[in-house]
Amino acid sequence: MGINIYNDEEKQFSKLLNDLKELPRVNAPDNFEFQLITRIQNKNFETLPEPREQFNLIKFFAPSAVVVTVIILLFVFLPGNEQYDNPLMADPPQIVAHSDHENVITDQNINNDRTNKQSFNAARQNSSSSLNAAVNPNDAVVKPSSKYPIFNNRSVALDDYISGENKRRNNLQGNVVKGGEDVPEFDGFFIREEADKNTIERYRALLDSVKRAQAKQDSLKGLKEPNN
């Protein structure tokens, strides 16, 4: 048996430990050995029954409650058919560029006759980083990048086209108009210039009347000259 020597940790309980040590010893009854040997000789080895595993209500109800709660929540919050959001019917996501800033820069470029394209591109890159700007009614909604290739031989710069400085005529029946920057902003759209018969007839009648008036004026001039 070990010796009960108190160390520093035990000093705080010294009174308690002394009292525990001095508790009266409980001894076995006098007939303890007699009873034991009698049991052994009679082969009476029946000991106290082992306690059965206790049926714990908490152990049973806690998982059951969790399962029931989950099922109820599923029924309550499961989305119904009327709440189903058809992805085909939903509006496509639009990326809104901060066009006010772009418009200002574009106007400056027009005034400067596109001499500072590099600074413009830099400004565009800066503005593209602030795509989370608030949307105003006058803001333009554009696609962020070109989905389809733009063929240079069929393309004209829109600003050039408007200002009449379009030097790149192609041999096809129309032009693909795009923005004035180097980097295409959108796919472009094709302008087909179809001949209008009425307009041609009108212009033709106009030209004929002009020619007739010219001829009439010439004849009048010829009549006046012999008099002079």
Partner: peptide
């Protein structure tokens, strides 16, 4: 075991 029976920590 420790304070009444006086056994060592190891025991």
């Amino acid at each position: 075991l420790r304070d009444i029976q006086g056994l060592s920590y190891e025991e």
